[in-house]
Structure formats: C-alpha cells, structure tokens
Simulated scan of single mutants.
Amino acid sequence: MRTLSAFNKFTNTLKEQDLIMPVLFIGHGSPMNGIEDNEFSQRWTKMAKEMPVPAAVLVISAHWFTKGTLITAMEFPQTIHDFGGFPKALYDVKYPAPGNPALAKETAALIHTAHVIPDHDWGLDHGTWTVVRHMYPDANIPVLQLSIDYTKPPQHHFNLAKELYSLRKKGVLIIGSGNMIHNLGMVAWDKINGPAYGYDWTLQLNEKFKQLILSSDYNQLINYDRLGKEGKLAIPTPEHYLPLLYTLGLKGSSDNPGIFNDKAVAGSLTMTSVKLCPA
C-alpha cells in the first residue's frame, strides 16, 4: 500500500544544485517491453544506474495527446493500461510511484508559452511506466507526466521545453517517450519478433535523424514536415515524434548528445534513443 512517506521529502520546492541531470528521449516501442527482459529494457535499467538518482521524473509521453497542456497533479497516479490485445500479465502490472503536486505546481509556473492545467484524472500511461519501471523498479521516486497539446505546431513544443531547463538543476530527470519513426500501418508483423529490420526509407531517415541530433542541427527536425516522402512515411501522425523535440529543446550549452538502442524494428519502427548530458 502506498503512503505519503514515499514522497514527503520531495514536497517542498526543489532547490537548485551544481549537478545538472541528463535529459532523455526514449523509443519505448511495444508495451511488452514493460515486462520483457530484452535488449531495450536492459539498456533502460543500465541507463538509470549510470545517472544520479533523480528527485523526480517528468515524462512527456506520446500517449497523452491533449487539447491544451496538462500536468498530472495527484498524489498517487494510477497505472494506465492504454492498449489492447496483449497478455494478461501486462494488464496485471501496477507501477505505484507517487506523484508530486508541489512539483506539478512549480513546473506549471515555469511555463509561459502555455497555460498549464493541473490534472487529477490521467496517471501514468504505457509511454511512461513501461520504461520507468525498469529504471526505478522500487517505484519510490515521484513520477509526473506533461501532456502534448495537439493544437500547437512543432516549434511550440521545442520552445516550451526550453522553459523547463531549470528543473534539470533541481534533480528532475526529464524524459521524452515516443519513437522517432513510428508507422504502425506499415509494420511487417511477420518480422516483429525477429532480428533488426527496417525498410530502406526507415534506415535512411534514421541515419539522417542521428546525424542532425549529433550535430545539434535541429531546424530540419523541428520542420519535419519538409522531409519529403520519407518523412511522411516515418511520421504519419506526430504524437510519437514530438517527445523528441521536448528532449532536444532541453539541451544545454555543455550537453553532449549520445545515441542508444539504435535499432529498427518490424520495418517501420525505430527504437533509436537519445541521451543529453553535460560533458
């Protein structure tokens, strides 16, 4: 049973510190990654061990796509099973991490490009818990979600992320969770459980995305609608892609970009992920 003691020490305003937390974009892929011990989940576990323990985690998930910008502000967010057709074991998972209403309020106050609405109905969707439960299995670190406003253009999301930078100085790990290339309509289902496989356009665009990220050349990534036919195939809808822009918008002048879980899956999906951390 969850109690307030799990997060009482985080309820006061977080203080700035010398340490700047990394920021991540994680390709979360199938919900089954939430319970499977595979190369992706193993890397998430290892990633957490390579970083300082955060005071809290804030996730921008592809699966909370809203009109307006919302932030989870409840004490105990529910575990949301927002998918269908999977084994019962996946639906049985509960990730009982606490929330942090004080941090939600503080985060909302940092954002001036949007009016942020406190939310008490959502919780942690699978874009969040399938990843974070591997990173912090004890569920003793507060976890919040910030929604993605579907009425706003890509540049808005990139700019909004910049306003969150000070949270990195307060021990908050910020994660964008989606997939850079995500076209479920073209998935090669016969190869879903096989070795790495990507269509030619998937592999070509994945390489281009990595090149632009590693060189901190974000203009083409923000204006992804200008990437031609390959871009339309890779990003038929924006919800899985936009979390990447939040991660990139949080880049500081001393951050070095790194790539991990760089793999194409089932033709039209990539798990390619990004870590930004000070040199």
Rank of each mutant, 00 (worst) to 15 (best):
L14E: 03
I175P: 00
I192N: 00
I111E: 09
S216V: 10
Y218E: 04
T13D: 12
A89D: 14
K229C: 03
H134R: 10
S147Y: 07
N256G: 10
I175L: 03
E36S: 01
T151E: 08
K67Y: 09
G171W: 13
F86L: 05
K210W: 07
N206Y: 12
K251I: 02
T113Q: 15
G185L: 11
L103F: 08
E36G: 03
I235L: 09
L19F: 07
P22N: 10
H112K: 15
T270Y: 01
A139T: 03
K15M: 07
L269C: 08
T66H: 11
A109E: 12
G176C: 10
Q204A: 15
G176A: 10
K152T: 01
L90A: 08
T202Y: 13
H115E: 12
P236F: 07
G123F: 10
G258A: 15
L70M: 11
I235E: 01
P87I: 07
F25P: 04
Y165D: 15
K15P: 00
T151L: 15
P54E: 11
H115K: 15
H63N: 02
E36M: 00
L173Y: 01
L146C: 06
S254H: 15
F7C: 09
V172W: 02
R2V: 11
H81V: 04
S253R: 07
M32A: 00
P54R: 06
F40Y: 05
L242R: 03
S147F: 05
A6C: 14
F86E: 06
E39K: 01
T107C: 11
K94F: 08
P87G: 10
Y95W: 14
M47L: 15
P22L: 14
A196H: 05
F65D: 01
F158P: 09
G29E: 00
D190I: 04
G267L: 07
V172N: 09
I60L: 13
A264E: 02
D138L: 11
A139H: 13
F260A: 00
L19C: 08
F76R: 07
L167Y: 12
L233S: 09
M51Y: 09
A6K: 14
D200Y: 13
I111Y: 11
V274E: 10
P77L: 11
V59I: 13
